[in-house]
Nucleic acid binder design. Sequence first.
RNA 1: GCGUCGGUGGUGGAGUGGUCUAUCACAACAGACUGUAAAUCUGUCGCCUUCGGGCUUCGUAGGUUCGAAUCCUACCCGACGCA
Length: 285
Amino acid sequence: MQKVIVILGQTATGKSALAVKIAKKINGEIISADSRQVYKGLDIGTGKISKKEMHGVPHHLIDVANPKHKFSVTEYQKLTNSAISEIVNKQKIPIICGGTGFYIDAITKGVVFPEVPPNNKLRKILSTKSEAELFKVLKKMDSSRAKSIDKNNKVRLIRAIEIAKALGKVPKIIEVKPKYKFIKIGLYLPEDLLKKKVERRVKKMFKMGLLNEIKKLKKNGVSDKRLKEFGFEYNEPTPKKVILETIKYAKRQMTWFKRDKSIKWLDADPKNNLNNIIPLIKYVS
RNA sequence: GCGUCGGUGGUGGAGUGGUCUAUCACAACAGACUGUAAAUCUGUCGCCUUCGGGCUUCGUAGGUUCGAAUCCUACCCGACGCA
């Protein structure tokens, strides 16, 4: 089976640089798995890799969306799946690299999401209702989904109603057998080191002109509401605030990754990880 | 030195006689995840526990009271005012 390498891990563990090194060694191309790097103009705050750092290795799923509009997992899924086949057709190896667990799972677990596009009008109406009211509505439309849903989670309640309205009910989760063999490698850094790296990275962001980047986004019509959605880096940031929030985020990332027992965790120290990974990739074949 | 106000759990900050281990928020820890995922949501959060409960907390020490974080006295600490 065709192999696809997946490099994942918490933020600031050096995934991008490692992915480039691997790509050069095994003739690969990189697909980003980052829910914010898909947007044009969010460069500094998302820690997007620069042209120079790519060292000529093609990168996919970066700058594919307009920050004014929402991007979704399904779009990510479609674009990534076609990127994978495109790379494979070139006799090259796809390397998925990123920290958005939900996006990675959408690819590697073959989850099929219901074909119901977001209905902003409906969402707006529903968002004025309380969780309890929404739950009642959902229960009437689809009692089985009502049983499994978190009845305090407004976002999910709204989405479930949106799907139920379009399809009659929320379909069961379907997981299609993946077409590829995914080799998942997690980069791990002990907490104290991670904190130091985050600090360094955030300070660098500010030096590189994070504040200017935000100004530019605003000038280009990206709303304040949207900026908030992009996270703390884009919402009136101060270095202290961004550092704290980033560490919190990194912990949440780990909560997600911990569930996946197929991840092979490696020391994130760049000195020794490449030598460990190449044989690992070969061995799994 | 005198006077005023204040000292509450990791932090901020409620509570001014019983229902107080003490609202709430934040942090911390654990977890969920059906097209927003750096999103959204849940649980725990003094100590011990055979999970029934037991024990100790609200600056410190006494006192009043059946009962005190809450009232009184002294002391310690902080802010401000007057000397």
